[in-house]
Design a binder for these strands. Structure first.
Length: 553
RNA sequence: UGGGGCGUCGCCAAGCGGUAAGGCACCGGAUUUUGAUUCCGGCAUUCCCAGGUUCGAUUCCUGGCGCCCCAGCCA
């Protein structure tokens, strides 16, 4: 477990834990991260993972990875494998084996019988529509089921038959007998077990009844000795139920604590919607670099440390909050600036010919891998009289503040000479196709005397450059909150992916999948692990560099 | 309109009766062969509003207002 990060600021959960430790209520901290294996993990889950595993580490306790697999119709092994990989990649460990709610099915079944015997649960034979109709509304009490007062014996028999598979799906259901008039809807005789003749990813067809979340989660926590069961705010209304089951079952009662889920601007977070983006092929898969999934961010090139740092920075509270994407991006840049080697790459090429440099001469110019860290070494850049520079670094009629190429303007070639633009070549349509420049050959590694050249631009040798595919990503949605749109799909950004060919320094051809480089003055780019071939790297733009000039414009 | 929550700077977020931390964003300025990084400096006399208690309230009380969640045999 690699959590050398800062302890972080105070939050209400740390306060509760500290109190519990000081009062002697607990002498250790046990948490859990309980995903349902019905989709891939996203940045919202990452917040929960960092919180739960982070707390366990901080208090030298334990955090269980427990799959909440109580609904066989939606859960698959593919998801449990992906989730395990994501949690591990984020830097957390869960002991020898992950846990599963399905491991507790037998115990849960015995507990259901116990409640029936106590007269606290009954088999209802209304269908789903009748149950809904009799549940009442937010302002009106519900009505008791006509089956509510079946005898314990009859309930026991019926429930056993449910378990044995004697009934069709939906024909009967086990309910807790609480209060059909409770103002909290969750207490109006909530469902405990439903009949589901479905293949479970782990138990196969052993069971044909499955516990509902409410009848499973608290008991799972209890079995595992979880001290603090941390979940999101929507479950707040379920807490009385959570506590009711534990009390009626007379078993250890963990404390449920709710926090606000993460909302990120310009993205959606619901698994249903993410699944639809995948199924309808609006994206390339769960791990498409535009997805807010852990696997998508990993493929995009976000370091795990950046995600951890992000989760620490945003804090934990109970306000429904919207986090600005810029915070995540700042965390990513913070990490990548430290670790990434610098390289030169031209994304929008414009030809430059150095008129006073010999046609047949080639020089190797030394360039540091990381200017702030000379110990990281250097690589050699081939230089000749034909270069590519970026179109954005040239203007025919530049404003005074444009510190780049323009008629008669001088500029430093990064890691190379100072050149001056003498002549502009255009094609028939008037488009600039080439610049003729002269180099000051006495400016390698030193400044010219008598004048100052402020601008620096990146370049590659046209005779040596390699051509690679670059995928530039933009936000997946155009609206700050896609959920507010009539249809969130309409808020999809049609320009979220831009594929282009870039000309890069030859050393980049050896880049391996997952490696990230800073293309100087442009951004951070990560070699795609799926689509890159041997000697044919495909670069995903992880994040751009900050661009003060872009702001000035 | 039933129940449960939440309201501190543009976005997050500390604070828990003693006179508003921090981060992101933003605005200045310094250094710089990345208009990057780094570095300095600025950025809420005010804590949803109105009353009240108190020597003193963002913190306590009362009343408003606003926002979020709940009527799956999903989790």
């Amino acid at each position: 477990m690699s959590t050398a990060e800062t302890p972080g600021s105070s939050n209400f959960i740390r306060t509760i834990i500290n109190e519990d430790l000081h009062s002697g209520k607990h002498d250790q901290v046990i948490t859990r991260f309980p995903p349902e294996p019905n989709g891939y993990l996203h940045i919202g889950h990452a917040k929960s993972i960092c919180l739960n595993f982070g707390l366990a580490t901080e208090y030298q306790g334990r955090c269980n990875l427990r799959f909440d697999d109580t609904n066989p119709t939606k859960e698959e092994d593919e998801y449990v494998e992906a989730i395990k990989q994501d949690v591990a990649w984020l830097g957390f460990a869960w002991g020898e084996q992950p846990l599963f709610a399905s491991d507790y099915f037998a115990q849960l079944y015995r507990w259901a019988i116990k409640l029936i015997e106590k007269g606290k649960a009954y088999v209802d034979s209304q269908n789903a529509e009748e149950m809904r109709a009799n549940r009442g509304t937010l302002t009106q009490a519900g009505t008791d089921s006509p089956y509510r007062n079946r005898s314990v014996e009859e309930n026991l028999q019926l429930f056993e038959k449910m378990k044995n598979g004697d009934f069709a799906d939906g024909s009967h259901i086990l309910r807790a007998k609480i209060d059909m008039a409770a103002p909290n809807m969750n207490l109006r005789d909530p469902a405990m077990y439903r009949i589901l003749h479905a293949q479970h990813h782990r138990t196969g067809d052993k069971w044909c009844i499955y516990p509902m979340y409410d009848f499973a989660h608290g008991q799972e926590d209890s079995i595992e000795g979880v001290t603090h069961s941390i979940c999101t705010l929507e479950f707040e209304d379920h807490r009385p139920l959570y506590e009711w089951f534990l009390k009626e079952l007379e078993i250890f009662a963990p404390q449920q604590i709710e926090f606000a889920r993460l909302n990120l601007s310009y993205t959606v977070m619901s698994k249903r919607k993410l699944l639809q983006l995948v199924n309808d092929q609006h994206v390339d898969g769960w791990d498409d670099p535009r997805m807010p999934t852990v696997s998508g961010m990993r493929r995009r090139g976000y370091p795990a440390a950046a995600i951890r740092s992000f989760c620490e920075r945003i804090g934990v509270g109970r306000n429904a909050s919207w986090i600005d994407l810029s915070i995540l991006e700042d965390c990513v840049r913070e990490q990548l600036n430290e670790t990434s080697f610098r390289r030169q790459a031209v994304l929008k090429p414009l030809k430059v010919t150095i008129t006073n440099y010999p046609h047949d001469k080639v020089e190797e110019l030394e360039a540091p891998n990381h200017p702030q860290r000379p110990e990281q070494g250097s690589r050699m850049l081939p230089f000749c009289n034909e270069l590519w520079v970026d179109r954005d670094d040239f203007m025919q009629a530049p404003p005074k503040k444009f510190f780049r190429l323009g008629p008669d303007r001088e500029v430093r070639l990064r890691n190379g000479y100072i050149i001056k633009c003498d002549e502009i070549i255009k094609d028939d349509s008037g488009e600039v196709v080439e610049l003729k420049c002269s180099a000051d050959l006495d400016t390698l590694g030193k400044n010219p005397v008598g004048r100052k050249v402020k601008g620096i631009i990146h370049w590659v040798s046209a005779r040596h450059a390699a051509k690679v595919t670059v995928r530039s990503y933009d936000r997946l949605f155009n609206q700050e909150n896609p959920d507010k749109a009539e249809n969130y799909l309409a808020a999809l950004n049609p320009e979220s992916l831009h594929v282009s060919e870039a000309l890069v320094e030859p050393s980049l051809l050896a880049a391996r999948g997952g490696e990230t480089f800073q293309f100087e003055r442009v951004g951070y780019f990560t070699v795609d692990s799926k689509d890159s071939g041997e000697g044919q790297p495909v670069f995903n733009r992880t994040v751009t560099l900050r661009d003060a000039w872009a702001k000035m414009k």
